[in-house]
Amino acid sequence: MLFPMPADVAPLLLLVAASAVILGTVLQRVSGMGVGLVVSPTLALLLGPVTGVLLTNITTVVSAALIGITLRHDIDWQRYRRLAPLIVVGSVPGALLVGAADRHWLEVIIGVALIGTLLTTALVRIPPMSGRLPAAAAGTAGGFLNTAVGVAAPAMLVYAQATNWQQRSFAATLQPIFGTMGVVSVLVKVGLGAAPVSELPLAVVSLVVAMVPIGIVIGGLVARRVPAAVGRKVAIVVVTVGALSLLGRGLAGVIG
């Protein structure tokens, strides 16, 4: 049976969820990332950390597939093949964490993980690297983060900085990477019983999926006028606010 929503909360929840998906999809179309960054903390606040992240994973699959079609000519499939196999390796411990952690502690973990990874990409100078090890580390870390908190973008951004990955190819190749991560995360969490599909509110799922194409169309128009760096900065601001709110609620629950 689908998780019921109180009648007085449902309209506001749907409006906020729809807005988050459109904004996240616009940012992802502009800079290559954004859906997980914006949608994950928003849906985690609205639906709880387990259901919210699971729906984020589903949204990521849809958005990555549609945007990937648009940017298919710039996808670096060789890099994708280096990263993709390790996604499963990271997803399993991520799913086990989701299944074992208390709800409030999971909110704290998600908040800390989001803020920590963003600070790492913003403040830490990443030395140049090459070879298979950086790709293996990025794929594993991305799989874990995507499954546990719904956001793999920081891990991919660190890898891009370390390997001097050009923005156009980076933004395009992120789409099959995010799509694969989303599919693996859903399958692993559902398969291990860490995130029951029965708790997904059908109204929210339907609306969220329907908003993705709208965001992509708007994002295509915005991408012609707004640099990718600006889109990335907007995503960072939004995810910081959401992560701090989630962290605060989690700490309140743990302490109280």
Rank of each mutant, 00 (worst) to 15 (best):
A141I: 11
D74G: 01
G193I: 04
Y80T: 08
P41M: 11
G253P: 09
M181N: 13
P85F: 02
G215Y: 12
G116P: 01
S19Q: 02
A113H: 00
T120H: 05
I67Y: 06
A162W: 12
M33S: 14
D74F: 05
V53L: 07
I177S: 04
G131Q: 03
A148I: 01
V21K: 08
S91H: 05
S91D: 03
G131M: 02
M156W: 10
N57I: 04
L23C: 15
G32V: 10
V237Y: 14
V9Y: 07
R249L: 14
L55T: 11
T59I: 03
A101H: 05
L174E: 10
R168P: 02
R81K: 14
I218M: 14
L37V: 11
G150F: 09
P6N: 12
L187R: 03
T121H: 00
M211D: 08
Q28P: 07
I177G: 00
A65Y: 06
T147N: 03
A229S: 14
A152Q: 13
R79Q: 15
G52N: 12
A64G: 04
R29F: 11
V50L: 09
A7I: 07
A172L: 07
P11W: 06
V158S: 07
R132L: 08
A135K: 02
L187E: 04
T173M: 10
L119S: 07
I67P: 03
L27P: 10
G242F: 09
V98I: 12
P227V: 12
D76Q: 09
M1L: 05
A243S: 15
L27M: 13
Q78D: 11
L114K: 03
L12G: 11
I216E: 13
P227G: 11
D74L: 06
A162M: 13
M211P: 07
I126K: 01
A100Y: 13
G111Q: 02
V234F: 14
V16M: 11
P11A: 08
V30F: 10
R125F: 00
L2V: 05
A148Y: 05
K233E: 13
L207D: 01
G90R: 04
G111P: 02
S245W: 10
S40R: 12
V208F: 01
G52W: 11
T56V: 10
A17F: 07
M156A: 13
L96D: 00
A137V: 15
T56R: 11
A10H: 01
G220F: 02
L133F: 09
L2I: 02
I110M: 13
T117M: 14
P196W: 06
A100G: 04
L200K: 01
G143L: 08
K189F: 04
A162P: 09
G131K: 02
N146S: 11
P176K: 05
L200F: 05
L55G: 12
I115T: 04
V39Q: 10
G191H: 07
L174H: 04
V239D: 03
A162H: 10
L23F: 01
S185H: 10
M33A: 15
G250T: 09
S91V: 03
V149S: 09
A203E: 14
V230M: 12
I87M: 12
I67K: 02
T51L: 06
